[in-house]
């Protein structure tokens, strides 16, 4: 599925893998949308969550907190999280805050 508006968060689904597009700015508004959707998929039994950061330029602290919430939920339900297409700054930020210890970077 191709997202119609890449500036906003969007979602894709195939078998047990769910792909969520983080959009260009991961903040409270877009983050809560992603968190809501991820939690629904995890509760439905999704075993692999892919967060696509290819369009993401900025991630603020609230965005980080929301990603940590998603990671925590996934770990509790035994699901795997993959962060894909991260830019260098985001990788540095995630490494610094420890997110990379809980997810696979692709």
């Amino acid at each position: 599925m191709i997202a119609e508006n890449l500036s906003e968060s969007s979602f894709e689904n195939s078998s047990n893998t769910f792909v969520v597009h983080a959009g260009d700015y991961l903040n409270k508004l877009s983050g809560e949308k992603i968190e809501r959707e991820c939690k629904i998929r995890l509760e439905q039994g999704c075993k692999e969550l892919v967060v696509d950061f290819s369009q993401t330029e900025i991630i603020n602290s609230i965005g980080i907190s929301i990603l940590l919430g998603v990671i925590d939920s996934a770990e509790n339900l035994g699901a795997k999280i993959i962060f894909s297409d991260l830019n260098a700054e985001s990788i540095e930020l995630f490494e610094m805050l420890g997110l990379t210890k809980h997810v696979t970077i692709a």
Binding site: I62, S65, I66, M96
Partner: peptide, 15 residues
């Protein structure tokens, strides 16, 4: 709620 997010996000706190 936002304040809790900001502390968690600032220092990478799980919960």
């Amino acid at each position: 709620r936002t304040s809790l997010h900001l502390i968690s996000g600032a220092l990478g706190i799980m919960r």
